[in-house]
Every structure is written in C-alpha cells, then in structure tokens.
Nucleic acid binder design. Structure first.
Lengths: 208, 208
DNA sequence: TCCGGCATCACCCGAATTGGCGATTTGGTT
DNA sequence: AACCAAATCGCCAATTCGGGTGATGCCGGA
C-alpha cells in the first residue's frame, strides 16, 4: 500500500513519515511540503492513499483534493489537519476526501484511517463524525421511518429509474400483476397516490 | 459509565453483555429482548449509553431511538445491527442515534464506539461512514446546463408533486394540451422519456 | 424585417397507469 | 397448529401518458 504525504510542518511531516515507514504493509512513496506540480507528482508516484494537510503552500488542501479526485479518482485522500471548522470539513468532504482526521489523532488511529480509506471505506475522528451527524439531525425533516419490504424497495428503485411496470416485471422475473400489487402497497405506505410523488419521496427520504 | 442493551437475539445479547461486563469502566445496567415499557426502563436505569438493535420486537429500533431522544435527550444511542440499507441508516441518524455499528464489528471497536458516543462524539463503522460520505459527494459532475423555461420549470415542479396533466392545467389555468406540450419539451431537454425519470432528474439536479 | 424560441391550443392512437375487487402460496412467529 | 405478513397471481374499468403532427400568436435579436 503506497502512501504519499503533503504536509508543510516539518516536524509533523517527519513523524508521519516515521509512522508510515515503520508499518509493514505500507510504503511511503512520497512526502512533500507543498502542492506544486501536484498532478505530475501523483502521476509519478501512483499512491493508493494521500494524506493531505489543509493549510499547505501552493494550492490549498481542499482544492488539491478536488484536483486529485478529478484526475485520479482511484486515489483515496485523507485530510489531516488541526482545523475542525464546519466549512473546512464539509468543503473537504464535498471535494472528495474519504477521511478526515485531526492532528492530535493517535498513530494507530492514523494507520487505521489509512487502511479504511484504502479499502474504499471512510474514516472520521469522532468530533468530525459528530459534526457530520449534526448536519443530518438539524434537518427539521420529521422523517417517520417507512418500513418497506425488500421487494417493495426494489420495485421502488426501478420506478425511480423510470421503468414501466412491464419492464420491472421483466427485470425482476415476475408477473406484471405482482409489480402492480407491490406498487400499490408502496403508494399506501408512502401515503402517496402517483408515481411522481412516490419517486420524489423515495429520493428525498433516501430510500434509494 | 452505565450501558443498556436492547437486542432480541439471545446469543448476540449475551456476548454483548459479556463484553460490557468485563470492561472496567463500564457497567451493564440493563439488557432486554424487546422495547416494551421503554420509557419506564430508561427512567429507572438512567443509562449513559443505549445499544439498540433495529429489528427488535415491540417497537422497532428506529422509533425507539426517537422516543428515547425525545424524553431523555442526554442518553446517547448507538445502533447495532446487521442492516446497512440507506433508509435504515439515515432514518436512524435522523432519529437521533449517535453511532451506527454493524454486528460483525470487533469487540474492541464496540467498546470504542460506546466511549465515543458517551463522550458526545459519534462513531460509524467504515462502510456506514462511506454511505454518509456519499451523501455529501453525490452530484457535482453535471456541467451540462439544462435550460428550462419558467413555464417548463413550473410544470416540472408540479409533476414532482405528483399532479396529473389535468390537475396541472387547472392549477396553472391553461389548457391540458399546453401542459402536454410543455412536458414533452421538458422530456426532450432532460433526455428522458418517462415521468419517473423526469422527477428523479429534477430532484437530483436540484431543478426544483 | 425576418427568424427562432416560447407559450398556447388542438387531434390521434396505442400503451401505460391507477384503483379496486379478489385469490393462493409461502415463510416465519407464536 | 394456527396465524399473519409478504409475495405471488388475476380481472376490470376509467383515466392518464408518450409520441407524433400540427397551428396560432408574441417577442426579441440578427
């Protein structure tokens, strides 16, 4: 697993280098104090995971993430910073970062974060996770939990994709009438009575 | 730190009990296989953290979380389940859960999750964190400008609300045929050919 | 001034959707 | 064994939708 570091603070960068270098399943493939020639560096090193500071000379860390994900979508990026301002956190995540850890994070947690993002997962330090959570809970959306069966969810997904009853029936290998029946049940449970409302509610309640 | 468990699977509940009981800084103050008399139980036990299963007899786990947070906002809840469907995850978080861990989570991670949520933080297993992350990152890759006219946008809004052509015609005080015509134009511009797709695209591209 | 985009209205037709009435067979819980 | 929810299938009627092919004005930019 190849790791690249972008961090301007020399002491901190060195300690990161040390952590990575002394870990068996990781290889430190690059360590930089600025984001100059970002694409060339990434292209040359082909890292699996990039540790990125937010306050870094050259291009700032958030823009750097965006650039990396745009040109090298397979590269996973983990933000590594002292800041936990809401705007920086959310901007980083929207830019494509898969992890966000604070600089006071213990070394073993840093390694854990790297492994998680490398494996396609995500990792946040608890205080960051809490911020993200608040973002959900602040929605006044009094989302009653709608208990759809698996079949009903599947049919609903296909409705969202614009398939007709007949096409869904084909795709699920089931009779047209069955789909008909499922759709009716979905409408009932969602308290809607048209496809448009059902699709809208499905997307807004993240049933898809 | 007082922990209460709500989990209907006996074997799994016992293993959780064991994990908690053998941890120095935690005290198992209750363990239940259903959510009956939920408020009385919480009131009597005064737990700091509740581990809650989603599929649990009585009231389902998500509604239970909502009830707990409503009457005992200081109690932190961590979901503990085998499900990772989007709807269950987001419904849980919106209901007030501070953590969401899968049942295959290692014991030390479970303890870590409990400590984090007790301390006012949040904890998600990586795959759940990834789902949450995707919720932020989905959308930017649409540079394709869709220029709808005002009328078309209005008609589209009403379609999203589930109105039929005729109802829209009434609402906008215009002929049914006009609505028909607008809808056809919208379909053409959105490159779709069904109401479902149009509604989905409208919401996802924030045209509404 | 002419052209193109927009809004409006109109007709046709085949297919899809809705809603309401059923039914049987599973699978899991009690 | 009894029960229940879910999944499956069926019929019917009214309405709506999707696609095609028009037409009429109105307005603003070339």
């Amino acid at each position: 697993m190849k790791i690249a570091i972008f961090e301007d603070n020399a002491k901190f960068r060195e300690s990161l280098e040390c952590i990575i270098a002394t870990t068996d399943d990781m290889e430190l493939c690059g360590s930089f104090e600025d984001t100059h020639r970002l694409q060339q560096r990434i292209q040359a090193l082909q890292p699996d995971v990039v540790l990125m500071d937010i306050n870094i000379p050259g291009k700032n860390g958030i823009d750097a993430v965006q650039e990396i994900k745009e040109h090298f979508p397979a590269v996973q990026v983990c933000m590594q910073t002292v800041f936990e301002d809401n705007d920086k956190v959310f901007a980083s995540l929207c830019a494509g970062a898969s992890g966000y850890i604070l600089k006071n994070t213990a070394p073993d947690k840093v390694l854990q974060a790297i492994r998680e993002v490398a494996g396609g997962g995500a990792f946040f330090t608890p205080s960051i996770a809490k911020k993200i959570l608040n973002n959900f809970q602040q929605q006044p959306e009094k989302a009653e939990y709608i208990r759809l069966t698996e079949k009903e969810k599947e049919v609903l997904k296909h409705l969202v994709d614009g398939l007709s009853y007949k096409m869904i029936a084909d795709k699920v290998s089931v009779s047209f009438h069955t789909i008909h029946s499922h759709v009716k049940n979905v409408y009932e449970k969602l308290h809607v009575n048209s496809k448009g409302e059902a699709v809208a509610k499905a997307i807004r309640n993240k049933l898809v």
